[in-house]
């Protein structure tokens, strides 16, 4: 995106967010001291393996954490000057779907099987607008058209089971953009779709983003998607942001060993066929998370003895490129981005 965009005030600001789940009475941070901000019109990608806290992060922003065991323990989520984690449920309901909306991973289960497509689309409109039934129907047809569905007049009266996965994801997108939100959180929107449909959906998201000038948080574990879509990338590992940069420099100059390995794991067309490279081991579970030191130390090929003793901070190493790894701490004068 242009530099102009980056100078505006941020739309969403997350500061020191800690989201924890209670297991056997004790709390474990699934998202640990995460800070970032999103400017209007920006597409921010969040990548990481499964279990890195990407989805928990998005649920925290939407205040959709499972009641009872998931909880925001500290930190601030500020959206347009309003602190979302201080709002009551009723106040949050006014924001959800109107200012911030969300697309889910599984289009097959994200639509209610007992209602028609049109009914579910109109529900968003009725929730947030004063609109007559006839107008709502017209608007829902227009919305379906805008997400590239070819026979919207018929589709409004159909049920979810009559639609393919790609179509359902389009309907989900139509629902999400119905009230022209300022921020769209897309939680792995293409993971459940096949490759050709994936490209179409991404294309659609990008078009809608340009037309409506909204910001998108795109959660994915597909680096190809990131390269295609995003202005800025957050790499998450075990609940922490370990690298933050614009999409281009992340691909040309990955800094954190984890990012390097992630990029190395992408199969390449021009290489000899052989074993796919992968990262040894797994993300430690919440209960087994090392308390001090770098959380990637156990799997890191460049590990040093002090890695497990010193907790690295996310520091800006180059203009617009921050990384949290002790390999880079001495390379520059300390410029702590976050505690």
């Amino acid at each position: 995106m242009s530099n102009l965009v980056h100078k505006e005030a941020s739309l969403l600001e997350v500061k020191n967010l800690e989201t924890a789940f209670s297991i056997d009475g004790a709390y474990y941070n699934a998202v640990d001291k995460v800070s970032f901000s999103i400017k209007p019109g920006q597409i921010v990608g969040v990548v990481g393996e499964s279990g890195c806290g990407k989805s928990v992060l998005s649920l925290s922003i939407m205040q959709l954490l499972p009641k009872g065991n998931g909880e925001i323990r500290s930190g601030e989520i500020t959206f347009e000057g309003v602190q979302l984690n201080q709002l009551s449920d009723t106040e949050m309901n006014r924001i959800r779907g109107r200012d911030i909306s969300m697309i889910f991973q599984e289009p097959m289960t994200s639509l209610n099987p007992v209602f028609t497509i049109g009914y579910q689309l109109q529900e968003v409109l009725f929730n947030h607008m004063k609109i007559s039934k006839g107008d709502a129907r017209q608007k829902s047809i227009a919305l379906l058209k805008s997400v590239g569905i070819s026979r919207p007049e018929k589709l409004v009266d159909e049920y979810p089971h009559q639609l393919s996965g790609g179509m359902r994801q389009r309907v989900m997108i139509a629902m999400a953009i119905a009230c022209q939100p300022k921020l769209l959180i897309a939680d792995e929107p293409t993971t459940a779709l096949d490759v050709t449909v994936q490209a179409q959906i991404l294309e659609l998201l990008k078009t809608i983003q340009e037309v409506n000038d909204m910001s998108i948080i795109l959660i994915t574990h597909d680096l190809g998607v990131i390269a295609e879509m995003c202005d800025e990338v957050l790499v998450m590992y075990a609940g922490r942001i370990i690298e933050r940069s614009d999409a281009e420099s992340l691909f040309y100059k990955p800094m954190h060993p984890y990012t390097e390995l992630l990029l190395g794991a992408i199969p390449k067309m021009d290489e000899e066929a052989g074993m796919l490279s992968s990262i040894e081991g797994m993300v430690p579970s919440l209960k087994n998370m090392p308390e001090t030191g770098c959380r990637f130390a156990l799997r890191c090929p460049k590990v040093k003895p002090e890695c497990s003793a010193v907790t690295p901070l996310l520091e800006e190493v180059e203009e617009g490129h921050s990384v949290s790894c002790i390999l880079y701490e001495t390379s520059m004068p300390r410029k702590g981005v976050k505690p």
């Binding site: 939407m62 959709l64 449920d89 009723t90 309901n93 006014r94 924001i95 959800r96 779907g97 109107r98 909306s101 969300m102 889910f104 991973q105 599984e106 289960t109 994200s110 639509l111 209610n112 099987p113 529900e123 968003v124 929730n127 947030h128 989900m172 629902m175 999400a176 119905a178």
Partner: peptide, 16 residues
């Protein structure tokens, strides 16, 4: 089910 979370995410009250 995810559609329940989807319903909450479009601003439906618990009653709804």
């Amino acid at each position: 089910n995810e559609y329940i979370m989807a319903a909450i995410s479009i601003g439906c009250s618990p009653f709804k």
